Lab assay of single mutants.
Amino acid sequence: DTFTFTLDGIEVRLHGASEELIKTIEELLKRDIRWEELEKWIREWEK
């Protein structure tokens, strides 16, 4: 599955994202998160 969203005018596609990761990103997007914050968060998630 591919999860697609737009952040700061950039279309982002995550391939093979888990349901948990998708739900977490959706929550972060509701908080009007900035790209830099999401990028940092995703790097931490990957560890």
Rank of each mutant, 00 (worst) to 15 (best):
T24P: 00
D8N: 07
W41T: 11
W45C: 09
E44I: 03
R34L: 07
K23H: 11
E44K: 02
I10Q: 11
E37C: 05
E39K: 09
W41S: 06
S18F: 03
W41C: 03
L29V: 07
W35S: 03
K47R: 08
T2V: 14
I25R: 00
E26M: 14
E27M: 12
E20D: 10
T4C: 10
R43W: 10
T4I: 14
V12T: 03
W35T: 03
K30T: 11
K47V: 15
L28R: 04
K47E: 15
W35N: 02
I10R: 10
T6Y: 15
L28P: 00
D32V: 05
E37Y: 07
E19H: 11
G9V: 04
E26D: 08
L7V: 15
L28F: 12
E46Y: 15
I33T: 06
D1S: 14
D1C: 13
R13C: 06
L21E: 07
D32G: 13
I25S: 00
W41I: 15
E27F: 08
I25H: 00
E26Q: 13
K47N: 15
W35M: 08
I25N: 00
K40D: 07
K23T: 09
V12P: 00
D1V: 13
G9S: 05
F3N: 01
H15N: 13
F5K: 00
I25D: 00
A17F: 08
E39G: 05
T2K: 05
F5L: 04
E20Q: 11
T6L: 13
L29R: 02
K23E: 10
K40G: 09
E46I: 13
L28Q: 05
E27R: 08
L7R: 01
T24K: 15
E11P: 03
R34H: 10
R31W: 10
R31A: 14
R34G: 11
K40V: 12
F5Y: 02
R31Q: 12
E44F: 03
T2C: 07
I10L: 08
V12Y: 15
K23D: 07
K30D: 08
L38M: 13
G9Y: 05
E26H: 11
R31T: 15
L7M: 07
E11T: 13
E36H: 14
R13N: 13
E11S: 06
T24G: 15
T4Q: 07
L7I: 15
W45S: 04
E39M: 13
I22N: 01
K47F: 13
I10S: 03
I33V: 12
A17V: 14
D8V: 02
E46F: 14
E19D: 11
L14F: 07
E20M: 13
H15D: 14
L7C: 06
T6P: 02
W41A: 11
D32A: 10
E20I: 12
E37H: 07
I33K: 03
K23I: 08
R34K: 12
R43D: 10
R31V: 08
K23W: 08
F3Q: 02
R43M: 13
W35Y: 12
T24A: 15
I22L: 07
G16Q: 06
I33R: 03
K47A: 15
L7A: 03
E44Y: 04
E39W: 10
E46W: 09
E46G: 08
T2E: 13
F3P: 02
W45N: 06
H15K: 09
K23P: 01
E19A: 13
E11M: 05
T24Q: 15
W35I: 10
E20F: 09
L29C: 04
T6I: 15
K30M: 10
I33S: 04
S18A: 07
T4K: 07
E11K: 05
K23Q: 11
W41L: 14
D1P: 11
D1A: 12
R13M: 14
E46L: 14
F3K: 02
E11Y: 07
F5R: 00
T4R: 05
T6A: 04
H15A: 07
E26T: 13
R13K: 15
K30W: 04
D32N: 12
E39C: 08
